[in-house]
């Protein structure tokens, strides 16, 4: 059946089988391979994307369910050639080792900061509790999210405009 999904602000119309999962729609039909395909069982969280601004595990969502909806993937995090604060945080704090869990981690972190600009370590750990880093690099992932929160608070204080409000 024909569906139109807006991905990273751009509408894509494709003919798909109803059984096609969102993760495969993104990777195989739109060539957006930044979304990683991991456990296939909604356990690992490597495939997390935003569906209507809310993180979901795209291995457990049908592409046809997204017809008429908006999806944001890791490719949609940067704006105007500038990395999102979360992406900068992962770079600054060595928040990735093998990188497999990173896109999902960053999208969940982005959502957390959109809703809670100053989360403490416990809140961050709870929010990413459905996502696995097999390198066990959680310490640095938490630091990266804290770094992003501090960076955005600093920019807001400097009057550059916080990221909040640009993504609702």
């Amino acid at each position: 059946m024909q569906i139109t999904v807006t991905v990273n602000g751009q509408p894509y119309t494709r003919d798909v089988e109803p059984r096609l999962l969102l993760v495969h729609f993104l990777r195989d039909h739109l060539a957006l391979t930044g979304t990683h395909w991991g456990c296939d069982t909604s356990n690992c969280g490597a495939c997390v994307v935003h569906l209507d601004a809310t993180p979901v595990k795209s291995c457990t969502v049908l592409a046809v369910m997204c017809d008429g909806h908006e999806v944001t993937t890791v490719e949609g995090l940067e704006r105007d050639g500038e990395l999102d604060a979360v992406q900068k945080g992962f770079a600054e704090c060595h928040g990735l080792q093998c990188g497999f869990c990173t896109p999902g981690m960053m999208l969940t972190a982005r959502w957390l900061l959109d809703n809670d600009p100053d989360p403490d370590e416990g809140r961050i750990r709870e929010t990413i509790s459905g996502q696995l880093c097999r390198c066990t690099g959680y310490e640095n992932i938490v630091r990266a999210v804290r770094w992003a929160a501090g960076h955005e608070a600093g920019r807001a204080a400097a009057g550059e405009g916080a990221r909040e409000g640009t993504r609702t």
Binding site: S42, G45, V48, T54, P55, V56, K57, T60, V61, T108, E126, T127, S129, G130, Q131
Partner: peptide
């Protein structure tokens, strides 16, 4: 119940 991302759905 499950985890925060699964609870969104």
């Amino acid at each position: 119940i499950a985890d925060p991302v699964v609870r969104n759905r």
